[in-house]
């Protein structure tokens, strides 16, 4: 067995506010193996982006990691000084965000941004860095890369810009890429192209991906395993086919049934009443209990931990006894 490239242990992220402490992410544990794609799915506010931000050390103050550890290979990274973390970000961990313009500076040519990032992290001459940048742009499918590299971001379409961002994220050969809703801002016909490029280029380089999205369809096509988040907590984690075809946690079951599918024509979609609680109103016990069709007494009092229910599968639900 190889060792995980990224290991998150009991991660808890808190925001102190005037009205008290808000827990945005609570007790999240998962590993990502080298070259693996881990999908993180959940509805808006579930804590997906916050988990990603914690890993790359970019939580906005006053938010902070209150508990837990994050390991990148053999190195613990949750307690690093800011400038030490800056060296890891971009070098060992690449980042892709929803809006390409948060990663690209509109005032600089693409060439300058790529070459600078490459030279920050790798000991290359200007001209070698440029060669590397052109090759990367070519790899992510930018036609005529040697010429287009001197364009500005606004001269590219949305999909092309996102390709540039992927090139930027991969320019120092990171071991893991955190991709937060990388296709959400794109048109349907372009989304699939971007997912393909991202997956191919990471596979070629052996980079693992943490793919954060609210779109279960993207996960189904891309991920090896999936973590389902609800109200800042891990509801379920397992191989993607098992979770999609045979979800265990009542929330993941409801989520799967709520998605309209091309292959079936139902009169009604699965109805989960209510909506996800706000951070200041997370119910006692299981966070899903007010919406859960299978709730029983224990759920309202005690919080279930995400424990192993089958080899390789975890769920945070009292319906399943932990296997030991």
């Amino acid at each position: 067995m190889s060792k995980p490239v990224l290991s998150v242990r009991g991660l808890t992220v808190e925001f102190p506010t005037r009205r008290g402490l808000l827990t945005a992410v609570e007790d999240i544990t998962f590993d990502i193996m080298p070259g693996e794609v881990l999908g993180v799915v959940g509805e808006s506010g579930a804590g997906k982006s916050m988990t990603g931000a914690a890993i790359i050390g970019l939580i906005d103050p006053p938010g902070r990691i209150a508990r837990g550890e994050i390991w990148l290979g053999e190195k613990r990274i949750d307690n690093l000084a800011p400038d030490e973390m800056r060296k890891i970000r971009g070098r060992r961990i690449g980042m892709i965000f929803q809006d390409p313009l948060t990663s690209l500076n509109p005032l600089y040519r693409i060439s300058r941004q790529l070459i600078e990032t490459i030279r920050t992290h790798l000991p290359l001459s200007e001209s070698d860095a440029r060669k590397r940048a052109v090759k990367l742009l070519d790899d992510v499918g930018i036609p005529d890369a040697a010429r287009r590299i001197d364009d500005y971001p606004h001269q590219f379409s949305g999909g092309m810009r996102q390709r540039v961002v992927i090139a930027l994220a991969l320019c120092a050969d990171p071991e893991v890429v955190i991709a937060d809703e990388p296709t959400t801002a794109l048109d349907v016909s372009v989304q699939a192209q971007i997912i393909d490029v991202m997956k191919e280029i990471c596979a070629e380089r052996g980079a693992a991906i943490m793919l954060v999205t609210h779109d279960m369809g993207v996960i189904a096509e891309t991920a090896d395993r999936v973590a389902v988040m609800y109200a800042g907590r891990l509801a379920e984690l397992g191989p993607v086919a098992s979770v999609i075809k045979d979800a265990k946690h009542p929330y993941s079951q409801g989520l799967m049934g709520a998605i309209p599918k091309l292959g079936e024509n139902l009169d009604r979609l699965v109805h989960i009443p209510g909506s996800m609680p706000r951070l200041n109103a997370i119910p006692q016990g299981c966070a899903f209990n007010p919406r859960c069709p299978k709730v029983f007494d224990k759920c309202r009092i005690h919080r279930p931990a995400a424990s192993e229910i089958e080899p390789g599968r975890r769920a945070a639900c009292w319906l399943y006894p932990e296997v030991t």
């Binding site: 379409s157 949305g158 999909g159 092309m160 048109d187 349907v188 016909s189 372009v190 989304q191 699939a192 192209q193 393909d196 779109d215 279960m216 369809g217 993207v218 189904a220 096509e221 993607v240 086919a241 999609i244 075809k245 998605i259 599918k261 091309l262 292959g263």
Partner: peptide, 24 residues
Amino acid sequence: RMLLDAVPDIEMTGRRRKKVEGEI
């Protein structure tokens, strides 16, 4: 046809997407 091909295969039937070219 292209739009239908671009819909992710959430039922995991193994349907292979055809590659969609270009942008609007």
